[in-house]
């Protein structure tokens, strides 16, 4: 006990000061679409065939192109492995949370949208978050990891709370199956205005692989339209923190 305590006391502060740093090179990251020309027009359908989550769609309208819905992507990395032209490639950026659902649907040659922050956000310096888990416990663990000394969301003025009455933000993970829809509604109603809703993880955004079945695990939108969307399966703590800062209107999300 005593040597352990001494060792603990000697440990320096563990908090990672490299804010929203890119993921390590080991990580598969999330895909992005570059503007490198795609062979789709020549009949290449490899990525869409490989995609088990039906996230990649070959659009046939006016001008054929490929779209990739990060809200359905389970980050398996199969599309980036097969793409012969490097149109779909890996991005290890942790700044992937968005405020509009459409921004999650990537198109070739898209510029990564820079979020526009509300000029007067009520939560810029302080935000209390209530987390509701609806069936994706890896995301629960990553949200929990945001509170560990390494990521330490507390330093941005973010606290997690036990009561919806205290909360400003509702963070929802998991695909919101039928039996969780009513409890989620009640939780939302128990929160005082102003409030924001954040969907965290692919399962929360669309239900992921489990969508479209009898249990109606089709994501948060069956109950409420989120203000911030955080992709990832499960999202890395930095991605979650990026989403939280976005919800706060914290300028840290713009200036690196």
């Amino acid at each position: 006990m005593i040597p352990s305590l001494i060792k603990y006391l000697q440990t320096p502060v563990q908090t990672n000061r490299n804010l929203l740093a890119d993921l390590s090179d080991d990580n598969r990251g999330l895909p992005i679409l570059t503007d490198s020309p795609c062979h789709h027009t020549e009949g290449c359908t490899l990525c869409a065939e490989e995609c088990v989550a039906s996230a990649i769609v070959l659009q046939q309208d006016r001008e054929p192109h490929v779209t990739l819905d990060l809200g359905a992507c389970i980050a398996c990395g199969r599309c980036t492995d097969v793409c012969p032209t490097g149109t779909i490639t890996v991005s290890r950026s942790t700044r992937r949370a968005v405020t509009r659902r459409d921004d999650l649907v990537l198109k070739s040659g898209d510029i990564v949208p820079v979020p526009v922050l509300a000029s007067k956000s009520p939560f810029r310096n302080s935000m209390v978050v209530r987390y509701v888990s609806t069936g994706d416990n890896a995301t629960d663990m990553e949200v929990g990891a945001c509170q560990n000394p390494i990521f330490d969301v507390g330093r941005f003025g973010i606290q997690f709370t036990a009561s919806p009455r205290f909360a400003d933000a509702l963070l929802i993970g998991g695909p919101v199956p039928l039996a969780m829809q009513q409890p989620l509604r009640l939780c939302l109603d128990a929160m005082a205005e102003p409030k924001v809703v954040i969907a965290v993880g692919t399962q929360a955004i669309t239900g992921g692989l489990l969508r479209g079945r009898y249990a109606r695990a089709n994501g948060v939108t069956t109950v409420v339209e989120p203000d911030v969307w955080i992709p990832g399966n499960p999202p890395h703590p930095w991605l979650i923190i990026h989403g939280l800062l976005l919800a706060m209107g914290n300028p840290l999300v713009i200036t690196p």
Partner: peptide
């Protein structure tokens, strides 16, 4: 329990 019954086996 059963709040997060998502129909995995049927799926």
């Amino acid at each position: 329990l059963g709040f997060v019954h998502r129909g995995v086996e049927e799926h």
